[in-house]
C-alpha cells in the first residue's frame, strides 16, 4: 500500500489529476479520481471527461500489475486498453476504480477494471475496462533487462 502511494506520487500526470490510492492488495487495487472543474469534458453538463476516467483506469491497471508482481518490481507498459462508458458519472461526484490482474503470463498481464461513482460502489458501474500490459523485468540497477 505504501509502495503504491509513493509510486503514484512520482507519476506527475496522475498527481495533476488528483488520483489517490484507496487500497492495494495482491488481488487488486482501488483508486479515486476527484470531480474537479478543470477535468470537465462537457461544459454544458459538468460531466467529467472520458480521458480523465481513462487515465484513472489505465493507472489502476498498471498498479494492479505491480501488486500482483510484488515484491518483484517490473514496469508494465500498456499494450491495449478498451473502455466502455456505461453511463455518465454525476457531476460533482468522484469516481472510484477497482482493477484486478486476473492472469499473469510470462510476458503479458491481463487486467479488468470497473469504475463507480463514489458512494455507489455496489450499484451500476459507470465504466468497465479491459487491458493487456507487457512485462519488462528490471535488473539490479533498475534498468530494463534485455
Amino acid at each position: 500500500m505504501d509502495v503504491c502511494k509513493r509510486s503514484l506520487e512520482t507519476v506527475r500526470h496522475s498527481r495533476m489529476l488528483g488520483l489517490q490510492v484507496l487500497s492495494a492488495e495482491e488481488e487488486g487495487v482501488r483508486l479515486r479520481l476527484p470531480w474537479r472543474e478543470d477535468l470537465v469534458g462537457n461544459p454544458d453538463t459538468g460531466v467529467l471527461h472520458g480521458g480523465a476516467v481513462f487515465a484513472l483506469m489505465d493507472h489502476a491497471g498498471g498498479m494492479a500489475n505491480s501488486c500482483r508482481l510484488y515484491p518483484a518490481v517490473e514496469i508494465t507498459p500498456t499494450i491495449d486498453l478498451r473502455i466502455d462508458h456505461l453511463h455518465a458519472p454525476t457531476p460533482g461526484k468522484a469516481v472510484i476504480c477497482d482493477a484486478t490482474c486476473y492472469r499473469l503470463s510470462a510476458h503479458v498481464t491481463f487486467v479488468r477494471m470497473t469504475a463507480w461513482e463514489e458512494g455507489d460502489e455496489q450499484g451500476e458501474p459507470v465504466a468497465t475496462g479491459q487491458a493487456t500490459y507487457t512485462r519488462m523485468k528490471l535488473d539490479r540497477s533498475g534498468r530494463v533487462a534485455s
Binding site: V11, G41, G51, A52, F54, A55
Partner: peptide, 26 residues
C-alpha cells in the same frame, strides 16, 4: 511536464495521450 507518466524515461502518461486523442475525435 504535467502530462508525464514515467518520470525516469521520461515518457508521456498513456492516459494523457488517450484523453488528447478522445478530445481530438470529439
Amino acid at each position: 511536464e504535467n502530462n508525464l507518466g514515467n518520470p525516469t524515461l521520461p515518457a508521456l502518461h498513456g492516459g494523457a495521450v488517450a484523453g488528447f486523442m478522445e478530445q481530438a475525435a470529439i
